[in-house]
């Protein structure tokens, strides 16, 4: 009976945490709406979440595109179908790798930083001090970060994919001599604006939302000690990475299954 009770306790605790996270999200959404008139706060966070993650995203995108170019060419040339290289690279990037990998990078770079920042603000009573100054931290701190995360993620994912396509071109055309026109036209013939590009963007918006939500929740509910904050940071990366990969499967099945 003991393991059963332990399982039950674990499930109950997980449910309670999920409930708390949903309640927190509702408040955070309210805060995002109320912070809109003060958009400079959002801009500030776009800098912290977007600009500071831009470099790592672009560099990673370039390398991933180059690897796709290499591997894609080696496989396609077996069927003398290297003319489809552009299509293969672009579809992989736009549908999957762009949104997913940039989201994983975002979780590691920006999500963990968010949790650490909020957790530390809590540990040093900055959030309590704001409350006592009649400033709602949900509006002043949480709202702009949630908005910035949701705005930054699709832009980062688009950069990742675009740079990746260029990386694939660099290898396909530069190293293997795939004709430039063939590379781009096979892509244009096969990649569809709505079914592929737009769905990829929708994915990245969802990922940005989930990562920021998890990061803010973990920070806001962190145990206010240095150990508690570091554990919360780890949880942010683990939880949001799992959510990205699991969510990607569900979204892919929904989006591309029927079409």
């Amino acid at each position: 009976m003991k393991p059963l009770a332990a399982l039950g306790r674990w499930v109950l605790a997980a449910l309670a945490r999920l409930g708390a996270a949903v309640l927190f999200l509702l408040r955070a959404l309210g805060g995002s709406v109320r912070v809109l008139p003060r958009f400079s706060l959002v801009l500030e966070q776009l800098y912290c979440l977007g600009v500071l993650t831009m470099l790592i995203t672009v560099v990673s995108g370039l390398f991933v595109g180059m690897v796709l170019g290499l591997q894609g060419y080696y496989q396609l040339v077996n069927f003398s179908a290297e003319s489809s290289l552009g299509l293969v690279v672009a579809l992989f990037l736009v549908r999957e790798l762009g949104p997913v990998l940039s989201a994983l990078l975002f979780a590691g770079r920006a999500g963990s930083a968010l949790t650490g920042e909020i957790g530390l603000m809590k540990a040093t009573e900055q959030l309590s001090a704001m409350e006592m100054m009649a400033v709602d931290p949900i509006v002043r701190i949480i709202g702009p970060r949630l908005l910035a995360g949701v705005l930054a993620m699709p832009l980062l994912a688009a950069m990742f994919s675009a740079v990746g396509v260029l990386g694939g071109y660099l290898i396909g055309h530069g190293q293997f001599g795939v004709d430039a026109g063939v590379y781009w036209s096979s892509m244009q013939n096969g990649v569809e604006l709505f079914a592929d590009v737009l769905n990829g963007i929708i994915k990245s918006v969802v990922f940005g939302f989930v990562i920021t939500w998890v990061a803010l929740f973990e920070g806001y509910h962190a145990t206010p000690t240095s150990e508690g904050v570091s554990r919360a940071t780890t949880r942010t990366v683990v939880t949001s990475s799992l959510a990205i990969l699991g969510g990607d499967y569900i979204l892919t099945a929904l989006m591309f299954g029927g079409w």
Binding site: M54, A162, M187, V191
Partner: peptide, 26 residues
């Protein structure tokens, strides 16, 4: 910060435009 955010947003929009015009059939 404002300039960098501007660069970031423009870069992201340019990437989106490239995905729409150059990569896909639009």
């Amino acid at each position: 910060i404002e300039i960098w955010v501007g660069v970031f947003v423009l870069g992201g929009l340019a990437a989106l435009a490239m995905l729409a015009m150059q990569v896909s059939d639009a």
